[in-house]
Design a binder for these strands. Structure first.
Length: 219
DNA sequence: ATGACGATTTACT
DNA sequence: GTAAATCGTCATA
């Protein structure tokens, strides 16, 4: 299965967010593969985007990875307990990225369940659709933390993206909506910058059966 | 030094 | 539906 190349990542976030749907995110732990098909993403447009960590050109120790070359991982810590993973894209020093919001788990489900169960009270078995149906759930399932921040997905042996043999999700199989959890971002809160695989039961919230992306489109 | 705040998830009423 | 959990980070002083 071909690895995603530098060129794959060197595009605007609105483009990569769509290209990533249907691709396979792979994490290896002690040589064991944990993997899932990306079914939900969000684009963060950088210095102009009030919802982005780099809005206004903010550059700190936390978000430094967003200024690195395309294909770099940006993993941040939030709410005192959660991690979320982004794929940095665009050009070097242009701090734009795509948030990975949900996966359809396809490899290492038992290991993912162990990771996900570790920090929960209830020990009832999680359904497959609860393993990676959110950005922090995905990081927990794949054991991603600040230790994986700044990795080069083009070269890393422990975190990378495999391009699926068949064509990625076609435009009419995508659903586009506003982003989640960015109500504070004023006019940027309602911009349609979130993409989902239409009909997927593995997405985080809302349903993936609403308006097709082809009817709304990015802006 | 301090205070407010999350690109969220879970459990509970 | 609502609220608690929980702490690194950042802006302000």
């Amino acid at each position: 299965m071909p690895r995603a190349s530098r060129d794959f990542f060197g595009v605007p976030p609105q483009v990569l967010a769509r290209e990533l749907i249907g691709q396979r995110l792979v994490r290896t732990l002690d040589g064991v593969r944990l993997a899932g098909i990306i079914v939900e993403t969000e684009a963060y447009l950088g210095v102009v985007d009030k919802a982005a960590h780099t809005y206004g050109g903010r550059r700190t120790a936390r978000n430094e990875s967003m200024y690195a070359q395309p294909g770099t991982s940006y993993v941040y810590f939030t709410y005192g307990m959660h991690h979320c993973m982004n794929v940095v894209c665009g050009r070097i020093d242009e701090p734009v990225a795509v948030l990975i919001r949900a996966l359809e788990p396809v490899e290492g489900l038992d290991e993912m369940r162990r990771h996900r169960g570790a920090r929960r009270r209830s020990d009832k078995r999680l359904r497959d659709t609860d393993l990676c149906s959110g950005p922090a759930k995905t990081c927990q399932a794949l054991a991603l933390s600040r230790d994986q921040d700044g990795l080069d997905l083009v070269r890393s042996k422990t975190l990378f993206i495999e391009r699926i043999r068949s064509s990625p999700a076609r435009e009419e199989s995508l659903v586009c909506t506003p982003r989640v959890g960015v109500a504070y971002a004023e006019e940027w809160a309602s911009r349609p910058l979130r993409w989902m695989l239409a009909g997927s039961p593995h997405v985080s919230t809302g349903d993936a059966n609403s308006q097709p992306a082809s009817r709304r489109g990015p802006s």
